[in-house]
Nucleic acid binder design. Structure first.
Lengths: 148, 148
DNA sequence: GTAAGAGTTTAGCCTTTGCTAAACTTAATT
DNA sequence: AATTAAGTTTAGCAAAGGCTAAACTCTTAC
C-alpha cells in the first residue's frame, strides 16, 4: 500500500506549499518598499527630484500615507529626507530601485513578446514583477532574446 | 459602506495616475480569500474534508488566524461551518475555487512549458496567479497548447 | 516683509492580518 | 464513565497600511 508514501509526499508538499505562501505574504512589505523606491528613482530621473505629493499621486495614496511610509523606508536605510524637503535615495535605495526596474523591464518585454497589448503588458508586469524568481526571470529574458 | 464610497472617490480622484498600483493593492484581500477557498477545495478533494488545522498548516499560519479569516469568508458567503465542525464551501465558494485552480493550472503549466523546474513553477505560479489578467492568461494557455 | 498657496507633517482613527495564551468542545482510549 | 488528546474558539495584543482634518513650513508674489 502506497498510503505511507502518499502521506509522506503530501506532508512534504504541504511544507513546501506553506513555505511558498509564507514567502508570498512576508514579501508584501518588501514589495511595497520596492514600489516606492522604484517610483522615487523614476521621479528623480524624470523631473530631477521626487516630492511626497508626486509619490502620493502616482501611487493613488494620501499624502499622510506617504509620509508614514517614507519614515519606514528611512529606517530601512533606503531613503533620506530632511523635514519639508524632497526625497532622496541612499546607495542601497538606488541599488534596489535599479534592480526593480530591471526586473520590471524584463517582465514587461516578456509579456509584449508573448503578444500582449502594451496596456496589458504594463499593468500585468506591475503585478507580476515581485513574484518572479530569478530562475523565471532568466527564462523570460531568454525568451525575449529569442523572439525579437 | 463608507469604505466603498471612499475607495470609489479615491479611485476617481487618482484616475489619471497609476491604475496598476491601486489594483494590485486593493486585490490583496481578494487574493487571500482565493487562496483560502482554493486550499479548502483541495483539502476536501484530497481527504474528504477540510479542517482548520489543515488549512493553518498549509498556509503556515496560526489556528486563530484561520478562525478569524473563516468568519470573514462566511460573511462573504463563500464558506459554511458550524462550531467545532469541518469547513465547507458554498456554491459560490466552489465557483471561486474552481476558477482559481484553473488559473493556477494554466500559469503553472505555462511556466513548465517555458522550461522551468517543477519546484520553481509551483512556487512562482502561486505568487503570479493573482496578478495575471484574462488576456495574459489566454496568451499563456495558447503558448502551452503550442509547446507541448 | 508679509500673505497666499503649495507642500509637508502630526494626530487620531480604522481595517486587515497576523500572533499567543487560555478556555472550551469533541472524539478516542482505557 | 473519566481522562486525555486533538482540534477549535475567544480574548487581547501588535504591526502594516490606509484615511481625514488640522497644523505647520517653505516659496513665491505682491
Amino acid at each position: 500500500m502506497p498510503q505511507t508514501a502518499r502521506r509522506a509526499r503530501a506532508a512534504k508538499a504541504a511544507k513546501l506549499q506553506s513555505a511558498a505562501f509564507r514567502r508570498t505574504r512576508s514579501d508584501h512589505s518588501r514589495e511595497l518598499a520596492e514600489d516606492y523606491v522604484e517610483l522615487i528613482a523614476d521621479l528623480i530621473d524624470e523631473r530631477g527630484l521626487a516630492r511626497g505629493t508626486d509619490v502620493a499621486g502616482r501611487l493613488g495614496v494620501a499624502n499622510a500615507t506617504v509620509v508614514k511610509m517614507l519614515k519606514r523606508l528611512q529606517d530601512a536605510g533606503l531613503v533620506t529626507q530632511e523635514p519639508y524637503r524632497e526625497i532622496n535615495l541612499t546607495g542601497e535605495g538606488w541599488l534596489l530601485a535599479e534592480n526593480g526596474r530591471k526586473r520590471h523591464r524584463i517582465v514587461e518585454n516578456f509579456l509584449l513578446a508573448l503578444g500582449l497589448s502594451e496596456e496589458t503588458a504594463r499593468i500585468d508586469s506591475e503585478g507580476i514583477e515581485h513574484h518572479v524568481s530569478d530562475e523565471t526571470l532568466k527564462a523570460m529574458a531568454r525568451f525575449v532574446a529569442r523572439n525579437s
